[in-house]
Write a protein that binds this DNA or RNA. Structure first.
Lengths: 257, 257
DNA sequence: CCTTGACCCTGACGCGACGTTAGGCCCTAC
DNA sequence: GTAGGGCCTAACGTCGCGTCAGGGTCAAGG
């Protein structure tokens, strides 16, 4: 595979319908780094790079930020097929969304026809409830592991307010104790740190979805790549996000041998 | 109409699903100026403002720039119904576009299923050919006067390369002579300037679509509001765009009495 | 072998459409 | 009358590029 010709930026740009500058930018931010360089420093794109670019453009068209796209493609890197399927699902969602908006416009047309005014709350239907941040987060979860996502939904839907408070307290406690370890200079592959990682894994496993040590690592990768989560961790101590991830990895090695 | 309650920014924001900051911004750039202010300086939005906001959000969702939206809504201000219809058309176009992309993803899925690689040129189908600038311009024309647009399409489709060269030369000559007038300090309502404007109008009328002096003014307004056209004019002389517009207006007054 | 012209490189600044403080006024409710 | 929630303007930050500026690369032709 990939035995085809390599392409220069300009060629890729015209192929994909983007500008050269865009490809430069994707390179700089690490979203699409060409798999080779010529002797003179020219970027050289292989077939796989083109595939990745197509997915990037598709997700951009759907409104995702470049950061989100990077995370999505990383998580789904091992399985092209399910990535494509997920993209298909998103496109179908957009199809339905567009249809809803059209129906809204039709209602508006009817209203003006009859000389009436539309209800103000009804006016923005279809347009209104699109919280992009929430949507990105949800998609990332689903993308990461759709089974885990569904299971999580099933369980959490049954929790009450008191449950949530308890769960949150439990989770926060782990983070706090982890911060203490970091402050004391304990290493991430120390038993204390690994124990805490294990405790966190069980926390997820118990309250949200079945979570093996391997799955735990994947989830952690997703979290620490997310700036929102990173901010949360960093507030409890500088470098805590990375420390946490390392502890989880060490715990995985320990438990799987 | 509009006898309902007036709304503050926050209310409008939650109704429409945008942030307060967005409304502030739309106000500052003149895209959506609330129709009233309270004694204390609070923005107050009436029902008509909400309608306009809905159209803005819809066109934004379709990818138009705020500048383009402003022009579109101004041009279509007199006729709500045809504006809504045009929006509907755009939404249907997007529906079709999304369907095309889905078919592309399906082809990619088939290819991976059979372990084949897709053709590189085929890979970006549906995604590729979306020149946003061209699209905006075209939509603006269509929006401004769909009859003129269709007529223009009909005629220009029959022109050959030689025709185009001649037409362009003719158009450029007018601009050049106009620049000379401006350099000589001639006023825009001077006969020389008005004659040139009239010549330009006939140029359009002959080669593109029937163009009355009133239509000519509208078109000129559209052009000079467009930064690309403005850049073109300014290259031939500072202030030429405005001078041109003024000359056209003067010519209209002269010919309609 | 040298030149020419198309293409590529790395900065660096600019811009549209907001997000995000910062500091202060308004206004309703208790 | 004061507390707190909402509003104001001003100003800087961010993302995803567009657009030069200054200079190296590369294939073709003389």
């Amino acid at each position: 595979m990939g035995a085809r010709r390599l392409h220069t930026v300009g060629e890729v740009a015209t192929l994909a319908g983007v500008t050269v500058r865009t490809l430069h930018y994707y390179d700089r931010v690490g979203l699409l780094v060409p798999s080779g360089r010529s002797e003179g420093g020219y970027r050289l794109y292989a077939y796989g790079d083109l595939e990745r670019l197509r997915e990037i453009r598709l997700l951009r068209e759907l409104g995702f930020s470049l950061a989100a796209i990077g995370r999505l493609l990383d998580v789904a890197a091992h399985d092209k097929r399910s990535a494509l399927k997920a993209q298909r699902d998103l496109l179908v969602e957009r199809l339905e969304r567009t249809e809803r908006i059209i129906r809204g416009v039709d209602r508006a047309l009817n209203a003006t026809e009859e000389g009436q005014e539309m209800d103000e709350t009804e006016m923005f239907e279809g347009l209104e409830e699109f919280d992009h941040k929430r949507y990105e987060a949800e998609v990332e979860q689903r993308w990461g592991d759709s089974e885990a996502y569904k299971e999580s939904k099933r369980r959490t839907s049954r929790y009450g307010k008191a449950d949530w408070a308890r769960i949150k307290k439990e989770g926060d406690a782990v983070v706090r104790r982890l911060a203490e370890l970091l402050a004391r200079g304990v290493r991430a592959d120390d038993r204390e740190a690994m124990d805490l990682a294990e405790e966190h894994r069980r926390h997820i496993d118990r309250w949200f979805y079945p979570c093996s040590p391997g799955m735990h690592r994947q989830v952690a990768a997703l979290y620490t790549a997310d700036t929102r989560f990173e901010a949360y961790f960093e507030k409890h101590g500088a470098g805590l996000a990375g420390f946490f991830q390392a502890a989880i990895r060490a715990n995985e090695v320990r438990s799987t041998g």
